[in-house]
């Protein structure tokens, strides 16, 4: 719990952590994603993965960043503004593949991360597989 308070305080978040279904969640109105990655790194948190989702057609893309601190799972929920999100790869190399996969599935550009295909093969259309407007 001390870690959670410290993390929120360094990130300047007014929202509080909520325990839901066995893990801790926070959904800040404004989240500096790169600062989050830097703070989690300073707490020796392990980056687990990123879950992207679009809950309805035309809804913004929701991004859940999952981190582990000593077995405790912490999730930051934020929304992509337009189709661009700052990359955290330079701060957290474990995010490389998942940012590339999210780019392929949701057509989100992680700025500062050179895009290389991951799951798609040459000639495949990139970007819209998991968007709700996908056929």
């Amino acid at each position: 719990m001390n870690d959670l308070h410290q993390i929120s305080s360094v990130l300047g978040l007014s929202e509080t952590w909520e325990e839901k279904n066995g893990s801790w969640w926070i959904a800040p109105a404004a989240l500096d994603i790169r600062l989050m990655a830097a703070v989690m790194r300073s707490h020796e948190a392990r980056f687990v993965t990123l879950t992207a989702m679009q809950l309805a057609q035309d809804a913004p893309i929701r991004l859940d960043y999952h981190w582990d601190i000593n077995g405790q799972l912490l999730t930051f929920t934020t929304y992509a503004q337009g189709n661009q999100v700052p990359s955290i790869v330079d701060l957290c190399e474990a995010a490389d593949w998942v940012e590339r996969e999210t780019h392929e599935n949701f057509s989100i550009d992680f700025t500062g991360h050179d895009y290389e295909p991951l799951l798609l093969r040459a000639g495949d259309a990139s970007g819209l597989q998991l968007r709700k407007e996908a056929p």
């Binding site: 839901k20 279904n21 066995g22 893990s23 687990v48 993965t49 879950t51 989702m53 809950l55 859940d64 999952h66 799972l73 999730t75 998991l130």
Partner: peptide, 29 residues
Amino acid sequence: GTAISRIEGPRGEVLYSVTADGVSDMPTR
């Protein structure tokens, strides 16, 4: 809502995140 499950598989941690809209009988994500 969304719930997360983690299991220690033979090769390591497996994570599933399941999101439901509470209406459909199919998961949203």
